[in-house]
């Protein structure tokens, strides 16, 4: 029974890879945010290395889909991860972008590196190249989704039902959370890490621009934001580092106080690209 089972598993594996190569089935957007991250990173590493403008951010920037941006941009923002995980990926790639746009909202978050270590795993990298079933987007369950929900074939969710009652509840939770000042060691370590990463990337010819994603206006006047921002402004003065102007928080809607609503992402993308043009960023 064991031998037959192994033979059956190998046969299924071969058949599945043949189907992937020949039929190119449409993949869903990813089953969850971590899988979406993996798909985004695998796609970047395997197909988009060297693209001129790359966004390094967290879930705040992740709503700024690549499809909302002009050709030559790639949004490498990862939900639930820190900017250092993205910077690690950019550093590991042999081809570097011309411009790297780094989100500075949560510069003090700690790196995790699970995503980059998974994608750059020396065993999995060649396997992924030759056997498409090892690409995250080709998981059978991810290929099933578009069969049941045609709308999921594209990769972007561009609308969400906003309920002011729920938004308020979530905002109240955020405001309470923003009363806590981040640990000073965390901020100091984040500053050091960001400076080091920027210096390393600049030495390889990458032009770095720091930017901030807007959050609900009520969160700006809170201890968490104020303390972190004050330190950032002190350590990364605009005379020394290229920084994008602050966006107008009143111009957008927010799903939970912190994340821009999908509907507002399009508007923000326009403003964002416009500002970059003014700064001379041309893909």
């Amino acid at each position: 029974m064991i031998k037959k089972t192994i033979i059956a598993a190998i046969a299924l594996f071969i058949i599945y890879n043949v189907i992937l190569v020949w039929a190119h089935p449409i993949a869903g957007p990813g089953q969850n945010q971590w899988q979406k991250n993996r798909i985004t990173v695998e796609d970047y590493v395997d197909n988009f290395q060297g693209i001129p403008v790359v966004i390094a951010g967290t879930s705040l920037s992740a709503r700024l889909y690549t499809s909302l941006l002009p050709t030559g941009y790639y949004n490498l923002a990862l939900s639930g991860e820190s900017i250092y995980d993205v910077l690690d990926i950019v550093k590991r790639c042999s081809k570097k972008p011309k411009y790297l746009l780094i989100e500075s909202n949560f510069y003090y978050s700690k790196p995790d590196k699970t995503v980059s270590e998974g994608v750059f795993n020396p065993l999995m990298m060649p396997l992924r190249k030759w056997l498409p079933s090892f690409r995250e987007e080709n998981q059978p369950a991810n290929l099933l989704m578009p069969l049941f929900n045609k709308g999921s074939a594209g990769k972007n969710n561009t609308s969400e039902k906003l309920d002011s009652n729920i938004q308020n509840k979530l905002l109240i939770g955020r405001i309470a959370e923003y009363q806590q000042v981040p640990d000073s060691n965390l901020i100091t370590n984040g500053i050091g890490r960001l400076k080091k990463d920027i210096a390393e990337l600049q030495s390889k010819g990458v032009k770095v621009i720091l930017f901030e994603i807007p959050i609900n206006c009520k969160l700006y006047n809170t201890p968490k934001y104020q303390v972190a921002e004050e330190r950032l402004n002190k350590e990364f003065p605009s005379e020394k580092y290229q920084r994008m102007p602050m966006p107008d928080c009143r111009a957008y809607q927010y799903a939970d106080g912190e994340h821009i609503a999908f509907q507002s992402a399009v508007k923000f993308a326009d403003w964002f690209v416009g500002e970059l043009k003014k700064m001379g960023v041309k893909p």
Binding site: M1, A8, A9, F13, S133, Q139, A141
Partner: peptide
């Protein structure tokens, strides 16, 4: 069908495991 069923389970472990 038993080896095929277990073979399918092995196959999904290889290609469809979660994080």
């Amino acid at each position: 069908l038993k080896p095929l069923l277990y073979g399918f389970l092995v196959f999904t472990i290889i290609v469809n495991s979660g994080r």
